[in-house]
Design a protein around this nucleic acid. Structure first.
Length: 575
DNA sequence: CCTGCGACTTGCATTCAAAGAC
DNA sequence: GTCTTTGAATGCAAGTCGCAGG
């Protein structure tokens, strides 16, 4: 007995120790390691990027025709031609700007002879190339299991070698360790640069960032890096300058990494601080609607929109460099319409503009009389293309916000309003007696409310109608099944019959819930809000409170990204 | 102030792979 | 097993915001 007792004591002691240890690890991982000098790490080691595979010239039997005549292209010209040929089925290639930009850049890659011969894109026939690539992708699909397995293994090997780095004491997953391959730029919306050639990135374009005491990544044989630097004030491992906009691209860590997780946590903590003082800020901007200064009134009305409608800040953009899209501060007169009275409502503002990614924002909302009067004032003597808020920009607004609360910027309102909406909707929609699938439907509905607030849209999936139909047939079948099962139960009141009925009822309910969920989600994208705006601790707490496994709302990747929240949040967490 | 740049987050679409239907 | 469908992973464009330098 004594031996058993000691054993028990030992095991308790060790389980206690391991608990202490785990807790310490948790604290170290999420609480410690705030460098006070702005540095992001002390040690960083990685293998550098993976480059795009080199161009493989087309076989001779794949021909290109100009003006009906077969023509063998030089390798550089041929490569660019294949980019276009691959996109032939896409609507892009019919657009004037796309064709014009492509042709201009293509000609730069041609030999002098090619340049003098190929003067009209309309006379170019890429169809054999196009068919060749279609056949190739078809062949890829038809590959044997073994061949597919081999490719998979090779990918896994590359991932193991290049996909991880050491940052401080952790091995971390890298987000995007492959360099973007060359191709034709496809902007979103009406982009003036669509069709331009995105050039191939070489080692000589690459800046490596790592710590001095690390093993430096080696450039491919016979090449060298543009630069190797040791800047621990930034988080990126690799950077290069892209040729379309001249902007810098980075290789950074995966969202599951310490450095991203901490930043994410910080973001939600800032939003929670806003929660504490949002009433004061709202009172202030309402007061500012009456200011004698125009710039203050504009600032106050803009902030009201950002708060109420979750609009983005709206930085100025260089004209002609990008698609014409706007956010709050860059709204123009042409983007709003004022209705003193419409459909029984007073002081209605109609918004209609293209926002980020050229997604349309359309909304008609009644506003306070004072806001309405201010808007009328802002519109006076202006042309449609003039700025609505001519005395305001994001930098002015953010400076003001900074004075109202440390760390406050326009986007914090989006985070705050998204998260608080989720929390409040979950409270409102979750019925304690509901089954798990019904509760998850409620969760999705709460998530959907946020997505609608943030205007997160998607193109309805091409197969949407069909997949809805399929689901409906399943439901019909299940209903038939249920009625037969019920009949059988009536004739023979056996226990297993009763159970069968119950089981089928459950299945039917599950299907119906699924159908509702899918229908409501037709044009709404939940992913962005889930990943970027909703404090994951709200969701984790909700799961704990109602006994819902976290896996039901977060998949593996999401659980990795939100590991910090899954660790932290208890069932009583309040945003 | 204004402008441009740099770093980092956000966002939709496409591609890929696993699950489910046949 | 094979074909379809679906959800996850990836891709990369497009925002936000702070800061340096004139």
């Amino acid at each position: 007995h004594i031996v058993l007792f000691l054993r028990e004591l030992y095991s308790r002691f060790f389980s206690f120790l391991s608990w202490v240890f785990l807790f310490a690890v948790w604290v170290i991982r999420w609480e410690e390691e705030r460098y006070t000098d702005g540095s992001k790490w002390r040690f960083l080691e990685h293998k550098g990027p993976v480059f795009a595979p080199p161009y493989e010239p087309l076989p001779d039997n794949v021909r290109f025709f100009y003006d009906g005549k077969n023509m063998k292209l030089s390798a550089p010209a041929e490569e660019v031609a294949t980019f276009f040929a691959k996109m032939l089925d896409h609507e892009y290639t019919t657009k004037d700007i796309f064709r014009k930009n492509f042709f201009k850049d293509w000609r730069k890659e041609m030999t002098p002879e090619e340049k003098s011969k190929l003067t009209d894109l309309n006379k170019c026939n890429f169809s054999e190339m196009n068919e060749y690539f279609k056949a190739q992708s078809e062949a890829k699909k038809q590959m044997s299991k073994e061949e597919k397995q081999k490719i998979k293994e090779e990918n896994e090997r590359v991932l193991q070698e290049y996909g991880y780095c050491i940052m401080d004491n952790h091995k971390e997953r890298i987000g995007n360790f492959r360099i973007e391959p060359p191709g034709l730029f496809r902007g979103r919306g009406d982009h003036p640069k669509m069709g331009m050639l995105k050039r191939r990135i070489r080692p000589e374009d690459i800046i490596i960032n790592c710590s001095k005491d690390s093993k430096q990544p080696k450039p491919p044989p016979g090449t060298r890096w543009k630069e190797v630097r040791h800047d621990n004030k930034v988080t990126w491992l690799v950077s290069w300058t892209e040729n379309i906009q001249g902007s810098i691209k980075y290789i950074m860590l995966n969202p599951s990494s310490r450095i991203k997780g901490e930043k994410d946590w910080q973001k939600y903590e800032t939003a929670r601080r806003l929660k504490k003082c949002v009433d004061r800020i709202r009172a202030q901007y309402r007061d500012d609607w009456k200011s004698k200064e125009m710039r203050i009134r504009q600032r106050a009305v803009a902030l009201y929109f950002i708060d109420k409608l979750a609009l983005r800040a709206g930085n100025e953009k260089e004209e002609g460099e990008t698609a014409d899209t706007v956010g709050c501060c860059s709204l123009r007169v042409e983007h709003i319409k004022l209705y003193p009275k419409i459909d029984e409502q007073e002081y209605v503002v109609e918004f209609d503009f293209l926002g980020k990614d050229s997604i349309r924002y359309y909304n008609k909302i009644p506003v306070e009389k004072r806001v309405f009067k201010n808007l009328q004032l802002f519109l006076e003597n202006k042309q449609p293309e003039d700025d609505l808020f001519d005395r305001l920009n994001t930098s002015i607004l953010n400076k003001h916000l900074q004075e109202l609360m440390d760390g406050l910027t326009a986007k914090v309102f989006r985070t705050y309003n998204a998260s608080i909406t989720l929390q409040q909707q979950l409270k409102e929609l979750t019925c304690p007696d509901d089954s798990i699938p019904a509760k998850i439907l409620s969760y999705n509905r709460a998530n959907r409310a946020v997505a609608i607030l943030c205007n997160h849209q998607r193109a309805p999936p091409k197969t949407f109608e069909k997949s809805m139909q399929n689901l409906q047939t399943k439901i019909d079948e299940k209903q038939k099944q249920l009625s037969t099962a019920r009949k059988q139960l009536k004739t023979a009141k056996a226990d297993h019959k009763r159970k069968a009925v119950q089981r089928i009822e459950e299945q039917l309910m599950k299907l119906q819930v699924q159908a509702t969920d899918r229908e409501e989600n037709k044009q709404i994208a939940l992913g962005t809000s889930k990943l970027n705006y909703l404090d994951p601790r709200i969701s984790v707490a909700w799961c704990k409170k109602w006994g819902i496994p976290v896996e039901k709302i977060y998949n593996k990747t999401q659980r990795e990204k939100f590991a910090w929240a899954i660790d932290m949040a208890e069932d009583d967490y309040e945003f």
